[in-house]
Design a binder for these strands. Structure first.
Lengths: 214, 214
DNA sequence: TGTACATCAGTGAACGCGCGTTCACTGATGTAC
DNA sequence: TGTACATCAGTGAACGCGCGTTCACTGATGTAC
């Protein structure tokens, strides 16, 4: 959304289609959002973009290439969202760290199609140039946040940032995929997923000897 | 596995097929295990079971019904596996609780096809009679383990068992779906998933004031 | 024990459908001069 | 500024394929008597 209103008319005025590549990605995102990662075909995307079924081949080798591209863009957006939430550790690392957690779930909720392509569609990380790197960069945001959060601790009692970030990453993904989907029919929860994650992070950090009051 | 060696010869000797229903489920599990939850068709399953493509309709309304049945059986096996790992809280609740965590990952690893059907194939929990209940019972094992683990704590500082079990469930699922898949191309990990989960549970329980030495 | 009959699991042929993919084409765009 | 030409995005017709599903059928099983 957001730029779609400007883009659609803009797309028509070009030569044949204008920007079919973008239109196909947009269409695929809509279809994934509606029917899940397996719920669209190459032909569907073409139809939704208003072109013939042969047109997409000018831009993507096949459906997998389209999905890989979506996953890559997803990780880039994800990285940016986490980065922004971290905001350099302001106002303090503890608060910023929790903001990163919330941003994780917010992304899963507002960009379910990207999220599916990134984590659930089985897209291999080497299936598009830059995909692996984008995924690594997104993870690196969390990882360096963990670094900053533990920087003040004495070396010998400092928990490994790698482990911390894997734990938080896993917990957030677990909650996102079980409870925070826009999908349907999934399990009910006695509280919002954001609160569930926030509580988990709080308990977890306390277990590492990290608290807000410091 | 396990009973398959006895079953296959046994299946041939009956009337037409013997036990086609079971054979179809077995075939579907193999196909899901090989190519993911979306990687098989109704016709594939029939072919793998060595029957005509019309035969499965005698046993399942459609592919979704087959998947729902697999998910239900999966939750039943899962419940039993968690129950067994908990083993009534022996030798002590803390140790038994960690065994439940390990059993979670072990299930995801040894029964990837069941696990997919249960958590990743998007099977609605109301799509088969008994499915919801089987899922609830599996979760209930973890939930009552959390109850037992906190039973000795004073009422006012006792963490809610519901929250605890949702956290552990989410963490285990997150680790399972990100790192413990037999699949392919998934992310590398500097340690076995079991250790990652064990460390997470340890830190988490410490954060709640629960330790082994008690 | 034997016979007649109902039941029921699996057959195989058939169908419509939509997908993926190829192909020669067309018509708009960009550019050399 | 104008003309000729190369490039390139999208067309539309065509194809083979496999899937889902239906249908009248067949042949084995179970059972009533």
């Amino acid at each position: 959304m957001g730029w779609s209103k400007d883009d659609e008319p803009g797309a028509r005025k070009g030569y044949h289609h204008g920007n079919l590549r973008e239109a196909l990605i947009r269409a695929a995102l809509n279809l994934i959002g509606e029917k899940g990662p397996a719920g669209f075909t190459f032909a569907d995307a073409a139809r939704a973009a208003g072109v013939s079924s042969a047109a997409p081949y000018r831009h993507f080798r096949d459906r997998d290439a389209l999905m890989a591209d979506i996953a890559k863009r997803g990780f880039e957006l994800f990285r940016d969202a986490l980065q922004k939430a971290w905001s350099g550790g302001k106002p303090n690392p503890y608060v910023a760290f929790e903001a990163v957690g919330r941003a994780f779930l917010a992304f899963a909720r507002t960009e379910p199609a990207h999220y599916s392509a990134m984590f659930e569609a089985g897209v291999p990380l080497d299936s598009a140039p830059g995909l692996q790197q984008a995924a690594d960069e997104a993870f690196a945001v969390l990882r360096s946040a963990a670094d900053a959060l533990t920087a003040h601790m004495p070396r010998d009692s400092r928990p490994p940032a790698m482990m911390m970030s894997l734990h938080i990453w896993s917990m957030a993904h677990g909650i996102a995929s079980l409870f925070a989907r826009g999908d349907a029919g999934r399990r009910r929860l006695p509280m919002p997923p954001e609160e569930l994650l926030e509580a988990a992070i709080l308990v977890y950090l306390r277990g590492l000897g990290i608290t807000d009051s410091k």
